[in-house]
Amino acid sequence: MQKFASSLTKIAPYMNIGTMFLGCMVVGVYGGWWLDQKFETEPWCLLAGSLLGIVSGFYHFFKIVFHLQKDPKEENDPTNNKPKD
């Protein structure tokens, strides 16, 4: 059970990558579309928003991946600082 739990903790951030990628694009596209409606500048904000959404999707993708790769050992190891109660 303990092993299952710690493996879940390891995979959880990876499960977020896909949705995060999608989330960035949706925010970009919808934000651009909303700005277009507001300022009547079709289709430029939508295009810019989509581009930014894709860029930000990739950026956050790599940010999460690199953050996950450098992390272990250090002081964040749960086995080292089990509270003594």
Binding site: T19, M20, V26, V27, G31, L52, G53, S56
Partner: peptide, 21 residues
């Protein structure tokens, strides 16, 4: 300026992803 927009979008995308998932 581009990075600020990109980071802001990431900040908004995080709760969106939580919500939709």
């Amino acid at each position: 300026p581009v990075m600020v927009v990109v980071e802001l979008m990431g900040i908004l995308a995080k709760p969106f992803a939580l919500c939709v998932r």
